[in-house]
Simulated scan of single mutants.
Amino acid sequence: MIQGIANVQQRIAQLQTQLGLNPTATNPVTVTKNDSTTAATGSFASALTAATSTGATTSTGSATTGNASGAGIVEAAKKYLGVPYVFGSTNPDKGLDCSALVQRAYSDMGVKLPRIAADQAREGTPVAGLDKAKPGDILAFNRPVDHVGIYIGDNKMIAAPQPGEQVKIQSVYAKPSTIRRVVDDAMTMPPPTSAAAGLRPAALGTGGGGLSGVPYADLFTQAAAKHGVPAKLLAAVAKVESGYNPRAVSPAGAQGLMQLMPSTARGLGVHDPLDPKQAIDGAARLLKSNLREFKSLDLALAAYNAGGGAVKKYDGIPPFAETQAYVPKVKAALAALGG
């Protein structure tokens, strides 16, 4: 009975912290809403609105998965290795708790999840057991669920364990109370409609025409028709990324015509980024996801160069010299193509 009361009290404290209602706090708390930090006054209404809008999903398996894959989720989570555990924090510069780590890793791949561990444990579809688990699956522990991690295979997971520790790779120390699969490597994008809902068409050019003389024009046009991303935009990105060189490899390890990093390629299901057809198709899916999420050509291009997490962290084009120069270069190349 005492243990049960303690669990209830811990859960209440967790909710109070996450909703900005911690009665011991002496200063206004901050909450993260779509990665832009705003001050919370501590009122129930404002805190609840901010907290519940972060995930932008219900807990009935309605997360938007886009092109995310299990391997991509794992790679996204690995970026936070070494971040200290801080209960209630969603800011990796300060620390993360277990459910914040899971939420951010999925968000970096374009998948929105609820903030609370118990709600995350209801997303997606159930997995029968650890022997059936795949990389990227959510492992949840205890009843009620009070801890989550991301499975990486070989009985290992990435998790933010507890105070005094850091985000780390560890063995699956106990039988999960539930395992949920939110994304699957076999998943594909929904049928293409508009890659950039809310943007003026003129901002992206007219699509598939006007690529006479451009290398791989037929592949750009095919990807444009398949994914709803303008062919001229794909060609402009390729021009800036590699000068249309399908064998290009950057000092940082980006590969191929569209200069995909190996981890990004794996997350997109691109098995060979040096294959122009695969590279263009993967880049089209990535740009489509960026355009849908950020609803801005500039931010979509910045995310292509620096990653969506960086764009959300800085709430705009990141202050990196390469990214600051990259966006106008692609837009100039797009303009040169008549886009």
Rank of each mutant, 00 (worst) to 15 (best):
G198P: 12
D131Q: 11
T65D: 05
Q170N: 06
L101A: 12
T26V: 10
A117N: 10
R115S: 01
D281Y: 09
T37D: 11
I2M: 06
R247M: 07
G282N: 11
G213C: 01
L260I: 10
K331Y: 10
T60Q: 13
G307L: 03
S69P: 09
Q324W: 04
H227A: 03
P84C: 02
N34C: 08
P215Q: 02
S171C: 00
N91G: 11
V127Y: 06
R143S: 15
A217F: 00
P191K: 01
A68I: 09
Q3S: 08
K112S: 15
P163E: 09
G198M: 11
K312P: 01
A283W: 00
L19E: 01
R122H: 15
A118N: 12
V237G: 04
N142S: 14
R180G: 08
S171E: 08
A100T: 13
T26M: 07
P126K: 07
A159L: 11
L268Y: 11
P23F: 14
A51N: 13
L96P: 12
A223S: 04
P273K: 02
E322C: 07
M1A: 10
T24V: 13
R247P: 05
G198Q: 10
L113A: 07
K79C: 05
D119G: 10
T24G: 14
V311I: 02
E293D: 08
T323K: 01
V167N: 05
S296A: 05
V111C: 00
G149P: 02
D137Y: 11
R104H: 09
I179S: 02
A248S: 07
K331R: 13
G164R: 03
A39Y: 08
G228N: 07
K313C: 04
K295S: 00
Q120S: 06
K112C: 00
P144Y: 06
L15S: 13
G256S: 04
L199T: 12
L204A: 02
N67H: 13
A284F: 15
E75W: 00
T264F: 08
V83N: 12
Y151F: 03
L211C: 01
A224Y: 15
G88H: 05
P176C: 07
R122D: 14
D137P: 08
H271P: 00
Y106G: 04
A105R: 10
G282L: 10
A310F: 08
T65F: 09
G198Y: 14
T30N: 14
F87S: 06
T125M: 05
A105Y: 06
K295Y: 03
E241L: 03
A236N: 05
V8W: 03
K295A: 03
D298P: 06
Q18F: 10
Q259G: 01
R143C: 05
L287S: 13
L299K: 05
P276E: 04
S46C: 12
P144D: 02
D119C: 07
Q259M: 02
M258L: 03
L233Q: 10
G309W: 06
P163F: 08
Y85H: 11
K168T: 14
V183F: 12
T221Y: 08
T90Y: 15
V172P: 07
M157G: 04
L233R: 13
A47K: 09
